[in-house]
Design a protein around this nucleic acid. Structure first.
Lengths: 248, 248
DNA sequence: CGCGTTCTTGACTGCTTTCAAAGATGGTGG
DNA sequence: CCACCATCTTTGAAAGCAGTCAAGAACGCG
């Protein structure tokens, strides 16, 4: 049986997120509330979309977690992007993607932006831009951060995004992902993810109980990502890719 | 002194690319030709855009190579995306990004799509979608491919993209990037990129002379990326992330 | 021709994976 | 309420891939 969430909880996150991107009119809000009224439930581990049958229309993720995943023939797997409550799943009828529910998920059809000048239309555009910026962050994370930094950065990103939709209270939040799923996000093995989390616990950075994770020292966590440790990785003076001098 | 390219060469790539995405009207083509007439030149290693001053408008990259790069405080560097001739540099006034010229670069302001129904407008939208799909590929590459596979996949991607704009003849193309820049794309060190290229040469996969690279066995190269080698990495039967059964 | 950049190579280190097995957890049915 | 089962987490030992360091060769430009 699927565990239900409070009715008032369903349908808040997406409003919070979109409204924070662009001021919404009453019509916009009404459209969003309307859309949230009849949602679809997709069970954990079920496919929301796959490479063969692209989505018919953009959706709002009202509740739960989903992932855009790419699978290789030999079983390797990479999660390209994680969707949380409030996110727009709108890319793309054009780019076929496999998106799976990581938990039970509540989806609603995305109301079309009435006037193209409506706040809703702009919110959608901004949402896409924000999503893209998280893709960039994911690339940088996978390309240049080591396992420990990667894990820290990813947790910080999740906390930041969850907080924006009221899903991170105080300094803790629900993280209903297995360490294997985490590993698929981070390009690591489940074993190594486990070791990194252990290390964070030992160092007093985080605390995990059940599926809830708490930041004990968010500041230090953040500083880890910027530059791992002052001594280990000394400021390698590498030739800059770009020149500072006068433009042109 | 900046080496000039043939006049007829400037301004072909972007037309080829956009027209292949959506049929263009005469007006569209005229607008593109117009735009290409007065281009700006940005010297190699100069910044096209940086985090502080976002681009004022979308640009067409008429000629040359550019990169969206992210730099860390400690000197680490990751190239998030490479732009080649014909590409649209349009993301985003919204998401500040540092984009540098990897070679001398010719840029033109992007003509605004007249009617929102114009082929040009749709070409822009599709261009953004295609770019996004390359970001996904970059994530999968960095997350789950080993150094050899990564290098192969990246070269294949470049060939494919260059071919689409007539910049890859036969089985070879100009690759005006240093191995260090390549390393920044691939999340590797310049030393290791060198070793991977050496290995590809030894195995008769590629041939490099100057800045020109030739695929000697594109088919085998492609097969490498799919599944590295049948023996080394045996079909790990990992629990599937998603369920195949009936939907809902 | 000389100089700086880029490429190449080898030896060594170390981070991450692999393999294997034991412990914890949660849900189910008796 | 407990036993059981599947799933998930945890741990150790060993192997392997990629990074680091260093130095020499090749290349291109002025």
């Amino acid at each position: 049986m699927i565990s239900l969430v409070d009715k008032e909880d369903v349908g808040r996150a997406h409003v919070a997120r979109l409204a924070s991107l662009s001021p919404l009119t009453h019509a916009d809000l009404a459209a969003l509330d309307d859309a949230a009224l009849n949602f679809t439930v997709v069970g954990a581990r079920r496919e929301i979309t796959n490479e063969d049958e692209p989505a018919s229309c953009p959706r709002l993720l009202l509740h739960g977690w989903a992932a855009h995943v790419r699978e290789f023939k030999d079983g390797r797997r990479q999660i390209l992007h994680v969707f949380i409550a409030g996110d727009l799943i709108d890319y793309w009828s054009l780019v076929p993607a496999k998106i799976v529910a990581l938990t039970d998920v509540y989806l609603a059809a995305c109301p079309v932006a009435g006037a193209s000048q409506s706040g809703l239309g702009r919110a959608y555009a901004l949402s896409a831009a924000v999503t893209q910026s998280y893709l960039f962050r994911q690339i940088a994370r996978l390309g240049r951060l080591d396992a420990f930094e990667r894990t820290a950065d990813f947790l910080l990103e999740l906390e930041e995004r969850l907080r924006a939709v009221g899903r991170a209270g105080g300094d803790s939040f629900e993280l209903p992902l297995t360490q294997e799923t985490l590993a698929d996000c981070l390009g690591l093995t489940n074993v190594h993810v486990n070791r990194m989390l252990q290390q964070m616990r030992r160092e007093g950075l985080i605390e995990i109980s059940g599926s809830r994770i708490r930041f004990l020292d968010a500041e230090r966590l953040r500083s880890i990502v910027q530059v791992r440790s002052p001594k280990v990785r000394r400021e390698t003076r590498k030739k800059p890719l770009s020149i500072v001098g006068a433009t042109d």
